[in-house]
C-alpha cells in the first residue's frame, strides 16, 4: 500500500514536470503583459488576433502545411510500393536497403540538413520550394517505409496469392487486396511523417532562402526580436491542431496502431 502511494507521487511529479510548462504557455498566451510573464495580470485574446494578423506567421504556417502535406504525399506514392517490394520480394541487399532507409532517423538532423544543403542548394541549385519539398520528402520516406512495411509484413501473403488464382493480375491484387488491408499503416505513416516534416527545423533552416520561411524558422526569428505572448498563442494553436489530429487518429484507428 505504501509502495503504491509513493509510486503515485512519483508518477504525479513526472506528469507535472511534463505538463506544467505547457500549462504555463497556455496561461501566458491569454495574459495582458507585453512580455511572456507568469502569473498573468489580466485576460485578453489580443495575442491570438495578433498571430492571425501577422503575415509572416500566416505565410510560413501555410507554407509549412503545404510542404509537409505534399512531401508526405510524395513519400507515400514512392514509399508504399517500395515498402511492398522490400517486404515481398527477395530484393538484393534487402537488409542494407532497410537500414539505409532508417538512416535519416538515426543520423542527427543537423547532419541531414547540412548534407542536403550541400547537394540540393549548392551543387544542383534547386529552386527553393522544390528543394524544400525534396528535403522534406526525404525526411518523410523512412517513416512511410518502416510503418507501411511492417503492416505489409503482418498481412497474410496467401490472400494475394488467392486473388491471383481468382484471376487478378499482380497490380489488381495490390490495389484490391493489399491496399485496403494496409490503410491503417498508410494513415499512421502519413500522420507520423506529416508531424515530423512540420516540426523539422534543421532541414527547413538549411534549405529555405530569401522570402521563403517555414513556420519553425519564422517562430525563432520572431522570438529573437519580440518576446511577447503571441509566440505562446501560436504554440497553443499548434497544440490544439495536434490534439485534433490525435483525436481523429484515435477515433479512426486507435493510437496503439501508430506506436
Amino acid at each position: 500500500m505504501r509502495k503504491n502511494v509513493s509510486l503515485k507521487i512519483f508518477a504525479g511529479l513526472v506528469f507535472a514536470f511534463l505538463l506544467v510548462p505547457l500549462l504555463i504557455i497556455i496561461v501566458t498566451s491569454f495574459g495582458t503583459n507585453s512580455t511572456i510573464q507568469f502569473p498573468i495580470k489580466g485576460f485578453t485574446l489580443e495575442w491570438y488576433s495578433k498571430v492571425f494578423n501577422n503575415e509572416s506567421f500566416m505565410d510560413s504556417f501555410f507554407l509549412s502545411l503545404q510542404v509537409a502535406f505534399f512531401a508526405t504525399l510524395l513519400a507515400l506514392i514512392i514509399g508504399v510500393p517500395a515498402a511492398y517490394s522490400l517486404a515481398r520480394h527477395r530484393v538484393f541487399g534487402r537488409n542494407w536497403i532497410k537500414s539505409f532507409f532508417l538512416s535519416p532517423t538515426i543520423v542527427p538532423g543537423l547532419v541531414v540538413g547540412y548534407s542536403m544543403y550541400q547537394f540540393i542548394v549548392i551543387k544542383y541549385q534547386f529552386p527553393i520550394i522544390q528543394g524544400l519539398l525534396l528535403g522534406h520528402f526525404l525526411i518523410c520516406l523512412p517513416y512511410v517505409i518502416r510503418v507501411v512495411g511492417s503492416t505489409i509484413e503482418q498481412l497474410d501473403f496467401s490472400i494475394e496469392e488467392v486473388s491471383w488464382t481468382l484471376g487478378s493480375t499482380k497490380l489488381q491484387a495490390f490495389i484490391k487486396v493489399v491496399l485496403p488491408n494496409i490503410t491503417s499503416g498508410i494513415f499512421a505513416s502519413f500522420m507520423l511523417a506529416f508531424i515530423n516534416s512540420f516540426n523539422n527545423i534543421p532541414v527547413s533552416q538549411f534549405l529555405s532562402g530569401p522570402g521563403v520561411t517555414m513556420l519553425p524558422t519564422s517562430l525563432m526569428n520572431y522570438i529573437e526580436y519580440n518576446y511577447d505572448p503571441s509566440v505562446s498563442a501560436l504554440s497553443v494553436i499548434l497544440m490544439l491542431g495536434t490534439i485534433v489530429l490525435m483525436y481523429v487518429i484515435e477515433k479512426t484507428l486507435g493510437l496503439a496502431s501508430i506506436s
Binding site: D156, S158, W164, L166
Partner: peptide
C-alpha cells in the same frame, strides 16, 4: 501465368479477404 489458369485454390490459412 497463375491468373489466367482458372484454377480454384483453397489455402491452409483460408486466406479470406478481411475487408
Amino acid at each position: 501465368p497463375v491468373h489466367k489458369r482458372e484454377f480454384g485454390m483453397v489455402f491452409q490459412s483460408y486466406a479470406l479477404f478481411p475487408h
